[in-house]
Design a protein around this nucleic acid. Structure first.
Length: 282
DNA sequence: GGAAGCTCCTGAAAGC
DNA sequence: TGCTTTCAGGAGCTTC
């Protein structure tokens, strides 16, 4: 499932294989894949034709290809989205949703493949900072040099919510999904239902540090491929799932204390934690 | 206005 | 064997 490290791996791939090229044509094979492009699929393909792609950028789990001064092709991979660069003539993937071809045909075409169709592509105006207007509310991610840890801590204290909810709120801190939230909480020995108001400044610093640690470790091995739905632009999987300490480890011994790990249903998904290292609040 | 819950979607796995 | 149910989850939308 693509979180920040996986999206960053894809961004690097796009930089290598797509930036600098000129779009020849685009084809939408499933309208839901461009549902966030409010003007519709025809407008989407019309406006892409003939534009030159600039180096890919990313904020949190969103990535985009700047197209000239004031337009960008925004992508979100959702649960199962893949951006693949394939040689022309390669048989279509079963869940191919959008195809983009370029004037230099020999370098392959860009394909958006998405089984569960939670992801999508869309075109948007960009603001002065070069960020697409529709993601202006997305906070900087913890790997961004301009991420403001003091402001993040202050925001946590203002919220009347719990720590894992806050980590998944992309307007507070971006790029963290269910897997890396559980991993960072395990490393910080925090229970997912701890109220954010109970976090001290040093604890917040420790938590952010562990988020960075787990993300950098995942990046180093190409991301996490827990259910084989995430691959880089060349269709290769990452290996970080072999290093997970919490996510998916129900009933297995905690790597710190040996206590069997627990899984609890939480917000229509799951939370994995060690009941001894991460005792519930109160 | 803020927080919590619902919904979209597909396919693998489990249950019967 | 084959059908039904459950589960996975990011983020926009709705409800309280």
């Amino acid at each position: 499932m693509p979180e920040l490290p996986e999206v960053e791996v894809v961004r690097r791939g796009l930089d290598r294989w797509v930036s600098g090229r000129v779009v020849a044509a685009a084809e939408v094979l499933h309208p839901r894949a461009v549902r966030r492009h409010v003007a519709g699929a025809v407008d989407f393909t019309d406006r892409l034709r003939g534009v030159r792609v600039a180096p890919a950028r990313r904020r949190g789990k969103y990535l985009w290809l700047p197209l000239g001064e004031d337009l960008a092709l925004l992508a979100h991979l959702g649960m199962s989205g893949q951006l693949l660069v394939q040689p022309g003539g390669t048989p279509d993937e079963k869940h191919l949703r959008v195809r983009v071809t370029f004037d230099d045909v020999a370098r392959g075409e860009l394909r958006f493949v998405d089984q569960r169709t939670f992801g999508g592509l869309s075109l948007h105006a960009v603001g002065r900072d070069g960020v697409p207007d529709v993601i202006g509310h997305i906070a900087r991610d913890p790997l961004d040099p301009l991420f403001d840890e003091d402001a993040f801590h202050a925001a946590l204290l203002r919220r009347r919510t719990t720590v894992k909810r806050a980590l998944l709120d992309q307007s507070l801190i971006s790029g963290v999904g269910n897997i890396y939230a559980d991993e960072a909480l395990w490393r910080t020995r925090l229970h997912y239902e701890l109220p954010t108001a109970g976090l001290t400044r040093p604890r917040t610093a420790e938590l952010v540090s562990h988020i960075r640690e787990v993300m950098n470790a995942a990046l180093a091995v190409g991301g996490t491929s827990f259910d084989s739905l995430y691959v880089n632009v060349n269709g290769e999987s990452g290996y970080f799932d072999r290093s997970l300490d919490a996510y998916g480890r129900e009933d297995q011994p905690c790597r710190r204390c040996g206590t069997p790990m627990r899984r609890r249903p939480w917000m229509n998904r799951s939370s994995y934690f060690c009941p001894r290292c991460q005792p519930p609040p109160g």
